[in-house]
Design a protein around this nucleic acid. Structure first.
Length: 192
DNA sequence: CAATAGATCATCT
DNA sequence: GATGATCTATTGC
């Protein structure tokens, strides 16, 4: 996807990312779950406090990766959205593994089910080997990129509150492909 | 199945 | 010095 794909409000880009393919080297997966993070109005967003050394990338031009280290253990991957100066971004929360499955299994030792290889923000960065070196890279140049799968129409999205945050916990900014077994939370079984 | 503890460190107050 | 956009293993019902 080119720069124009990312140069829109984060909610819109988050929705449109569903079904797209995230590629890094020989590994790739279909994006099945995303979350939008906004700017100064969104206390859950890193950019809420404004421009700091860490959030510099978020205030830059769209179409770049924002990779941050969290809980002393994990990396999370975001796509910078909106025009330069506006810090909205999209957190990639889960992938359906498509290419390089054996490599992913090696990176995620001990995982048996394919559904568990990349069904969480920290898991997918481990499976695709996404780390601090990829912070601020341009997604339109590679080696990290987002691609369209065939000419798929915009998917219907299930919209829910975001996960794991304290502030604005009710805002409906999480987008999931309905029924996907690769989302970070399994679809609730239908009531009888 | 649900709840919880522990790992562990960059970032900002 | 506290906090956090998490994951895994373990415990308890």
């Amino acid at each position: 996807m080119g720069r124009d794909f990312f140069a829109h409000p984060a909610e819109l880009v988050a929705r449109r990312c569903l079904g797209k393919i995230l590629v890094h080297g020989r590994t790739a997966g279909r994006i099945v779950e995303t979350e939008a993070y906004l700017g100064a109005s969104d206390r859950a967003a890193h950019a809420w406090r404004g421009l700091t050394p860490r959030t510099r990338v978020l205030f830059g031009p769209p179409g770049h990766a924002y990779v941050y280290w969290i809980y002393g253990m994990h990396y999370c991957l975001n796509f910078v959205c909106e025009p330069e100066g506006s810090p909205g971004c999209v957190l990639i929360r889960a992938l359906e593994p498509l290419c390089g499955l054996s490599l992913m299994r090696r990176r995620r030792a001990g995982i048996r089910r394919a559904e568990d290889l990349a069904n969480g923000p920290g898991k997918l960065t481990q499976a695709l080997a996404i780390g601090a070196r990829l912070n601020a890279v341009d997604l339109t140049l590679g080696p990290l990129s987002v691609r369209r799968w065939r000419s798929e129409a915009e998917l219907h999205a299930e919209v829910t509150p975001r996960i794991g945050i304290r502030h604005n916990a009710a805002w409906p900014l999480r987008f999931v492909i309905p029924g996907s077994p690769f989302a970070s939370r399994p679809p609730r079984r239908a009531a009888t």
